[in-house]
Simulated assay, not measured.
Amino acid sequence: MVPFAGYSMPVQYPAGLMAEHHHTRNAAGLFDVSHMGQLRLVGPDAAAALESLLPVDVIDLPAGKQRYGLLLNDEGGIIDDLMFFNRDHANGGDLFLIVNGACKAGDIAHIQAKIGARCEVIPMPEMALLALQGPQAVTALQRLAPGVEQLVFMSGGRFSIAGCDCFLTRSGYTGEDGFEISVHESQAETLARALLAQPEVEPIGLGARNSLRLEAGLCLYGNDIDTSTTPVEASLNWAIQKVRRTGGARAGGFPGASKILAQLADPASTVARKRVGLVALERIPVRDHTELQSADGAPIGEVTSGLLGPTINQPVAIGYVRPEFAALGTRVNAIVRGKAVPMEVSAMPFVPTRYYRG
C-alpha cells in the first residue's frame, strides 16, 4: 500500500505485478479506482457549456454514450484528460464526468469557475469507482447483472449488481474489454466482494494498471501529458472531432484554440515535439525521464513512461522526440546509466486492444 492523491492505494497484491498483469490479459481483474473524481453537470446548457472547455464534440454525443475529452488551459496545455457520459439530453442535460484523482480538486474548481453560471456542477465524493477489466470481465459480470453483455464499448447505463445500485460503462484503461462501475461508498465493499467471488476475477493493483495502460499506448496524466503539452504534441489529434476543427459555428471556441488549430493545420512549422511509442532493441528496461539521443549523440527528447512490457516481453516506452525523429521505424538511443540503448519508434498500442464494439 502506498499514499497516492490523498488515498492509501494498493500497488500489488500477494500474487505480484506480473501475475496480476497476465491475469487481467487472460481472465478478469478488479481495480479499485475510487481515487478518481466523479461529478455531474446538469441543466439545459450543460453540453454547450462543457464544449466551451474541451476541443471535442460534446453537443452531438448521443444519450447513453461516452467520449474521451481534454480539459485545456488558455495556452492549449492539457489540464487533465477525462471521460464524459451523456446520461440524458431529453430532460435538460445530465453529463457524468470522471477525472484523474490527482487533478480532481483543481478540475472541479476550474469547471465551477468557468461554467458554474451556465449549469449545475455537482461533485460526487460519496461515489466509489471499481474497474473490472479483461476478456472474461463480461462473463463474470453478466452473472450478477444480466444485460451488461448487450453494451458495446463506450456505452453504459444503470444496473443492479449484487443488490447494489450501480452506474456502469463498458470502458476502461487497460486496452482490454471491461467495465467501470460507479457505486455509492456504502455499497462499494459489497460490490467488490461479489465480483471477487466470481472464479474469473482477481484483485489487481496500481502497478499492473500502469503496465497494462502502457502496453495499450494510453497516456498517464502527469507523465505523458500535462499543462506543458498540447493535444497535437501528444498525438491526440484523433480526440478532436472534425466539427471542432474546421468551418461551422462550433469550430474553435475552446481554450488555446488558435494555437491548437494552427498546429493541426501546419504541424511542420508549429510543433516542436511529438509523442511516440518506442521499443527497445535490447532487453534493457528504459524508465521514465531517460534522455533520448540521435545516433550522433544530440539530445532529441525524453522517455515519459517506460518498462518491460509483460505481455510482449520487450521493453516499451512512450516519449517525446523532435518531429524529424517521429516517423515509424526511426532509430534513436536511450541513455541508461551512461550506456546507449537502441530503440525504434513504434506504432501504438504495443498490444492490440480488444474493446467490444459489437
Rank of each mutant, 00 (worst) to 15 (best):
A298F: 12
G297E: 11
G306T: 01
C119Y: 00
G306E: 03
R245H: 05
H22I: 11
G205C: 08
D57L: 07
A90L: 11
C103T: 14
G309D: 04
F153H: 15
G29Y: 06
Q150V: 02
Q263V: 06
P44A: 00
D81A: 04
A317D: 05
I78T: 10
M83E: 10
F159G: 08
S34T: 06
D177N: 12
A113Q: 07
T230G: 13
L196Q: 05
M154K: 09
D226Y: 09
A5K: 11
L39G: 00
R357E: 15
K114G: 00
I79Q: 09
V2K: 15
R158D: 12
L39M: 10
R250L: 10
V33R: 15
E180K: 04
G205I: 09
G76Q: 07
Y173D: 06
P299G: 08
H184Y: 02
H22M: 10
D60P: 01
R67Y: 03
P203C: 04
L141W: 10
R250G: 01
G222I: 03
D177C: 12
I312N: 13
N73E: 13
D74K: 13
V243C: 08
N313W: 10
A109K: 05
G253D: 03
G256T: 11
Y7H: 15
E302P: 02
A63S: 14
R283F: 14
D288V: 11
A49R: 00
H35I: 00
G106T: 07
W238A: 15
M124C: 12
A109F: 04
N210A: 11
A109N: 07
G92D: 01
A109E: 14
A197P: 02
D165K: 05
E200N: 10
A113Y: 01
P267L: 10
V99T: 15
G247A: 12
L261S: 07
T230L: 07
T24G: 05
V276T: 02
A295F: 10
L130T: 05
T304G: 08
I335R: 12
I260L: 09
L72S: 08
L50V: 02
A216H: 05
L61F: 00
T169M: 14
Y68R: 13
